[in-house]
Design a protein around this nucleic acid. Sequence first.
DNA 1: TCATTTGCCTTGCATTGCAAGATAGGTTTA
DNA 2: TAAACCTATCTTGCAATGCAAGGCAAATGA
Lengths: 109, 109
Amino acid sequence: MSSTQMLKGILEGCLLAIMKEGEVYGYELAEKLNRYGFESLSEGTIYPLLIRMQKEKLVLTTLRKSTAGPNRKYYSLSEKGEKELNLFIERWNRLSVNVNQIVKNKGGV
Amino acid sequence: MSSTQMLKGILEGCLLAIMKEGEVYGYELAEKLNRYGFESLSEGTIYPLLIRMQKEKLVLTTLRKSTAGPNRKYYSLSEKGEKELNLFIERWNRLSVNVNQIVKNKGGV
DNA sequence: TCATTTGCCTTGCATTGCAAGATAGGTTTA
DNA sequence: TAAACCTATCTTGCAATGCAAGGCAAATGA
């Protein structure tokens, strides 16, 4: 099992959390996630996810000119996205409590 | 995104951790996980995973008679499984640190 | 004998993340 | 002006994970 397999489903919540503080564009998201410790997160992972989130209306987008390179597509949270973020945080907290119990006990119940 | 989507890849580590303390059989694992807070974890999830872990030689199995019902298949950690468990714990700790940073900041960097 | 409980397993599916590469605009250097 | 190199977005095709739905089998009790 690779490290990235553990990400499944968690990445969306992380993107929502980062957008919570303000607009970001895809390339920037990839850089921030790397700085947060998610190494080897490729654009082939992030862009399709952003597109899906746009279809689900969790995010709003606007195109802006870049200082260097092609236009940037900025993402920000919709109202629906804010609600989804709150749900994610609840789920994440429950999950980490459960896993920590198991890992720290190393078994039993 | 459903709650269970966040599990992807984490379940294997939890199974290894539970087996660390001693032999368990599949049905019992499902019950323990439920008590740990993983509700709605079905046998359609657990049994195929156990079979895969057996193929990968992470676990050893022995059949025993049940007090009520068909034979039980008991699982325990192999040496390889113990190593895998340690790797999982490292990865889990890194992941939860990263996600907590993002969720608690709610963005920035 | 028939329902219930315990216990294992299979099939087929949707979703997620990734590798690899295509496409484009801008700057720098030769 | 051409070559090289960043920045930036997107697509295709794949493997892995978890789940719903269901079947099979052994023991117990009504």
